[in-house]
């Protein structure tokens, strides 16, 4: 083990056919195969009940996969090991700090149960608190900390034992928006700096995009797409992913002879033919009074500061969300002309 507190051994993780059926027959997770490279940050993203937390708990050793599934850390098969022998760091949504111990005692707990003597324990706790810039809080009681401070103590507690992998279960969900953004940046910086293999579970697509090397999008106990944040955002595997990651408009279209008929107008088209559903992001719809293909009426205008989110209704009766510049102002009932570049459209089979 390296003595440098700032670098971790990058341990790869592999899941082989891990499924989970709970007593009573509920299938929480369909068989999943997944390779996570050493040092990679992978985010499991999906709505509640999609199987992301179950997968995390299988990796942690808090749940056993159904017979036939196996979990590897590097070349070691850890399937049969309980969590206390897997050496994983875990951070929970509820912080799960021990209220009967102060900050330093919480951070040092993993070292204490490993039988490390008091002097070396204090030294490593001090080192870790210094890294997290929390030396001043060492003797505080847990109930004297803010939510953000609590989660940073939980992170320090998980990292001080130099775990093989770091598992984070919705760590920012309990925080309010401002703190969430700050801590998200901090976690991102920490994960890059430490080079530890990290697996992060969230239902928040913004968090997933900001932190992930790769995102695993899950739905109904299945993996629907694995890819970089750009892949998932720009080339979603299906309408579910497109809708869950960012906002998307779904339009009815008809393609034939190199033309796509959409929103009552024709655009050049090189893709599939026949009746199609096409997806387009709000930021890819332009307002253009001159070259716009279709006319639409503004039904909602939400000023968001950096942009204005419009909801418009077209002559063909379809509803679209559009991002307009923040400085342009609109009133409900205004008529606008909208333009869509064909290369920004994603065709989905109906």
């Amino acid at each position: 083990m390296s003595r440098d507190p700032l670098r971790f051994e990058p341990v790869p993780v592999r899941l082989n056919a891990c499924a989970k059926t709970f007593p009573g027959g509920t299938r929480a997770l369909e068989p999943i195969d997944l390779e996570i490279a050493g040092g990679e940050t992978v985010v499991f993203l999906g709505p509640s009940g999609c199987g992301k937390t179950t997968t995390l708990r299988i990796i942690a050793g808090l749940e056993q996969p159904d017979p036939g599934g196996s979990v590897f850390f590097g070349s070691e098969d850890v399937t049969a090991l309980p969590i206390e022998r897997r050496n994983v760091g875990m951070v929970f949504q509820s912080y799960a700090l021990f209220p009967n111990m102060d900050v330093a005692q919480n951070v040092g707990y993993g070292l204490r149960v490993r039988g490390i003597d008091r002097r070396r324990r204090d030294a490593r706790v001090g080192e870790m608190l210094a890294m997290m810039q929390m030396e001043a809080l060492a003797r505080r009681r847990i109930d004297q900390l803010s939510g953000g401070q609590r989660q940073r103590v939980a992170l320090a507690r998980a990292l001080v034992v130099r775990p093989r992998i770091l598992l984070l279960d919705e760590p920012l969900t309990a925080l309010d928006a401002k703190l969430r953004d700050g801590l998200r940046l901090e976690i991102d910086r920490l994960l890059r700096q430490l080079g530890i293999t990290a697996i992060y579970v969230t239902h928040d697509q913004g968090e997933a995009m900001a932190l992930a090397d790769r995102i695993v999008v899950m739905s109904g106990g299945r993996v629907v797409q694995i890819g970089t944040p750009r892949d998932v955002y720009f080339r979603p595997a299906d309408p579910f992913v497109a809708d869950f990651v960012g906002t998307t408009n779904r339009l009815q279209a008809q393609a034939a002879d190199g033309r796509l008929h959409v929103l009552g107008a024709d655009v050049p088209w090189a893709g599939a033919t026949g009746p199609l559903a096409v997806l387009v992001r709000p930021e890819d719809v332009r307002l253009d009074a001159v070259t716009g293909q279709a006319e639409a009426k503004v039904t909602t205008a939400m000023f968001l500061g950096d942009r204005t989110r419009l909801v418009v209704e077209t002559g063909t009766g379809e509803t679209l969300s559009i991002d307009a510049p923040g400085r342009a102002s609109f009133a409900i009932g205004d008529t606008v002309r909208i333009a869509i570049d064909p290369d920004r459209l994603l065709a989905m089979p109906l």
């Binding site: 942690a60 808090l62 309980p82 969590i83 206390e84 022998r85 050496n87 994983v88 760091g89 875990m90 929970f92 949504q93 509820s94 799960a96 700090l97 021990f98 209220p99 009967n100 707990y109 993993g110 149960v113 490993r114 939980a154 507690r157 998980a158 034992v161 598992l167």
Partner: peptide, 27 residues
């Protein structure tokens, strides 16, 4: 009791009796 406290202790390497003595009984 928050079951995640016991899970956090186990993740840190605590054996069942240590979870009981250090986390559950104080709570």
């Amino acid at each position: 009791l928050d079951p995640q406290q016991a899970e956090a202790a186990r993740a840190l390497g605590a054996r069942p009796w240590q979870v009981l003595v250090h986390v559950v009984l104080p709570a």
